[in-house]
Design a protein around this nucleic acid. Structure first.
Length: 118
DNA sequence: ATGTTGACTGCGT
DNA sequence: AACGCAGCCAACA
């Protein structure tokens, strides 16, 4: 027989955690790889978060990957979208102003889970 | 098990 | 101030 609720459930993949946090980002706001990495424990490099985002399109649920930019507010991941402009268009559709691959109001739009979910 | 890769970041030159 | 190098963690072959 086996316990209905195993105490040691499947170890949640880091990817899954990242995707979950990204889904919490409200429309019209953005977050960064480093911020998310820090929220998940800071021991994981921001780079790993970026790697997780690359797998975002394979996630079971929708992940608003366009709301994640790098620490400078650059759309570093735009080339990973269906089209090179998809990321910018998705952001503008949420009311986020986007310059050439950059968010002018980035510092005002930054959504930090460690702060917002506190 | 080891080596390579990647949507990043911080520090040094 | 701009550019380059190295560190970092997890997934894949």
């Amino acid at each position: 027989m086996k316990p209905a609720a195993p105490a040691a459930p499947e170890p949640r993949n880091f990817f899954q955690d990242v995707h979950e946090v990204v889904r919490l980002i409200p429309a019209g706001r953005v977050s960064t790889y480093g911020t998310i990495a820090h929220y998940l424990g800071a021991r994981h490099g921001a780079r790993t978060v970026g790697y997780a985002m690359m797998a975002a399109h394979t996630a079971d649920q929708y992940v608003p990957a366009h709301r994640v930019v790098n620490r400078l507010g650059h759309l570093t991941g735009r080339l990973h979208f269906a089209t090179p402009t998809a990321m910018q268009e998705a952001l503008e559709a949420e009311g986020v102003r986007v310059d050439i691959d950059r968010l002018p109001d980035f510092d005002k739009l930054l959504w930090d889970p460690a702060v917002e979910l506190a």
